[in-house]
Design a protein around this nucleic acid. Sequence first.
DNA 1: CGGTCAGTTGACGGAAATCAAAAAATGTGG
DNA 2: CCACATTTTTTGATTTCCGTCAACTGACCG
Lengths: 246, 246
Amino acid sequence: MSDPEQKRVPLEDLRRSCASCSVQQLCLPAAVDADDLARLDVLVRKRRPLQRGEQLYRQGDPLTALYVARNGAFKTVVHAPDGQAQILGFQLAGELFGFDGFGTGRHQCTAEALGPAQVCEVPLDKLEAYALEVPGLRRQLIQLMGRRMNRDQAHVAILARRQAAERVALFLHGLSERYIALGGRPDRVDLPMSREDMGSFLGLAFETVSRALGKLQDEGLIHVDGRRVTLLDAQALRAMVHPDGA
Amino acid sequence: MSDPEQKRVPLEDLRRSCASCSVQQLCLPAAVDADDLARLDVLVRKRRPLQRGEQLYRQGDPLTALYVARNGAFKTVVHAPDGQAQILGFQLAGELFGFDGFGTGRHQCTAEALGPAQVCEVPLDKLEAYALEVPGLRRQLIQLMGRRMNRDQAHVAILARRQAAERVALFLHGLSERYIALGGRPDRVDLPMSREDMGSFLGLAFETVSRALGKLQDEGLIHVDGRRVTLLDAQALRAMVHPDGA
DNA sequence: CGGTCAGTTGACGGAAATCAAAAAATGTGG
DNA sequence: CCACATTTTTTGATTTCCGTCAACTGACCG
């Protein structure tokens, strides 16, 4: 896992880590040719590891970079003035995030590590400079934001459901698809967040989340073992998500 | 700013209409200097009027343009395979929309006129060509998408509320702010959509929307007259939205 | 071995969905 | 302009589901 001969040249490490990063196709260089890709590493800065509960950026912070979850997962939270928090999203290992704040220049939410984590950081000023050389980069950024918007829309579609079990099923289904896209097993969903976090995301009390998971298990759709969920009947789960079978 | 000698060149009409369009600051040219602004009109194409219920684009259609509601309002809807529809947003007169579909190249939802309406259309291919001349345009587009994402996040924050009256209050508050931004009266909120549409957007049964409006009226916060709502106590409404008074 | 935290399960009350019907608004054709 | 049909909105009665309160279990950690 290391280049023993190199005398601690950070650039080398970065390049290697970026090449092995599962995000590479999701990440910026998707529309950039291989030659450009080779130069992209210089943009990325490895960041110190984060502990569970540590915040990567806070609501109100100026937007200075985008982030890729390298290991571990994150949640993005909006804190209302009265102290109550609303979770807007979860970022899995391999996903790019930090787009909130492009509207105002300041982050609209706080990003917090759900467990031990590492992030790669893409400073925006370097990205900006790089965009002058690589015309396709901004277009690629727009596409990535478009995907992120679609995910937010899916979140809305979940929250508008009235049955708790439906919301949970939709949530698991969405997580499963993301894990698959990141190279995971199609039937395995590991939940990096607590029941309480799920509840906040889904607009449910955490007890209701627990009960809904139990109900889905009783129906034979999933198997629940703490934060390890197995999809037993992805077909039926999908049917629950898309009742018409499309 | 104009070429008066040109004989009925549609360009003239377009320029005039674009100059009077209330979107101009929201719209693309915000980060573009005045000189560039003058050339922007050529991008915009006036579209035929739409009738109530008529669809501007449909889920699955290739993304070919962005739109500005000129008169009237629109709703964007996701149709689930089982036929049940979820409203993702409302577009008021003067607002730019159509960003869904930047992720996949196809619209993720259907845009439908809530009443008689007119739209200006910004073809993407022209926008693309224009972006080569005006470097700031893509950045501006990113910023606009960022704002749109923030609005979606506000939608999530609404849906996560558990009291129906709170959701409705937040909805009215948000609409009011948008009307103010577009130059409307601060205390007047005209609802271009039915109770059923509101219900879909808010994740509530339409009867519940009706009752919640009645409750807010009984509490003296608003006055309801069909689709014409007057904010009687914007202070209290704001307090309901931001319980801590921030 | 206590102590905290995360998760499950049970009981209960309340808020919203649902079912139902009336009233108001809107549109249509004569 | 009116009469009629249709849609929209309101209001009422009932039921269902979820939030809340509470007790309990198990895991992790000092």
